Amino acid sequence: MPSLQTWTGPLGVTIDYTEIQSWGRVRVAAGGPSGPTPHRPAAAAAFEAQARADRCRVLWFGVETPEDIAPNRPSLVIGAEPVWGAGRWPAMVTRKASVRAQIRRAANKGVTIEPWSSDRVRASAELRAVLADWLARRGLPPMSFMADPFVLDAPGDRRFWVATRNDRAIGYLALRPGDEVFVEWIIQRREAPNGTAALLLDTALRDSGCPAFTLGMVPLSTHAPLSDTAPSLLVRGLLTWTRAHATRFYNFGGLERFKAKFVPDRWRPLHLVTTGRPISVFTFHDVAAAFAAPRAPTRFVGRALLDAAAHEIRDATEAARDWLSSR
Rank of each mutant, 00 (worst) to 15 (best):
A169W: 12
E191K: 14
P155F: 13
P193A: 08
N194I: 11
D167N: 14
R168C: 09
D179M: 08
W185V: 00
P149R: 12
F150M: 10
G195P: 01
E191Q: 15
A169F: 10
T164R: 15
D148E: 12
P193Q: 07
F145A: 10
E191N: 12
A169E: 06
A192I: 12
E184K: 14
L173H: 09
R158D: 08
D157N: 12
A174M: 07
G195N: 10
A174W: 05
F160W: 12
Y172A: 04
M146P: 00
N194L: 12
W161K: 04
N194M: 04
W161A: 04
D167S: 14
I187M: 11
E180K: 05
N166Q: 13
L173N: 12
D157Y: 01
F160G: 04
R189T: 15
A163G: 05
A192K: 11
V162F: 13
S144V: 01
T164D: 06
I187P: 02
I186N: 05
G171I: 06
A163L: 09
A154T: 15
D157Q: 14
D157F: 00
A197G: 09
L152R: 06
V183A: 02
P177D: 05
E180P: 00
D148S: 07
V151D: 09
F145P: 11
G178P: 09
F182H: 13
Y172N: 06
F182A: 03
A174Y: 04
A192H: 10
A197P: 02
N166M: 04
I170P: 07
L173D: 02
V162A: 06
F160E: 02
V181D: 01
V162D: 03
A198N: 03
P177F: 13
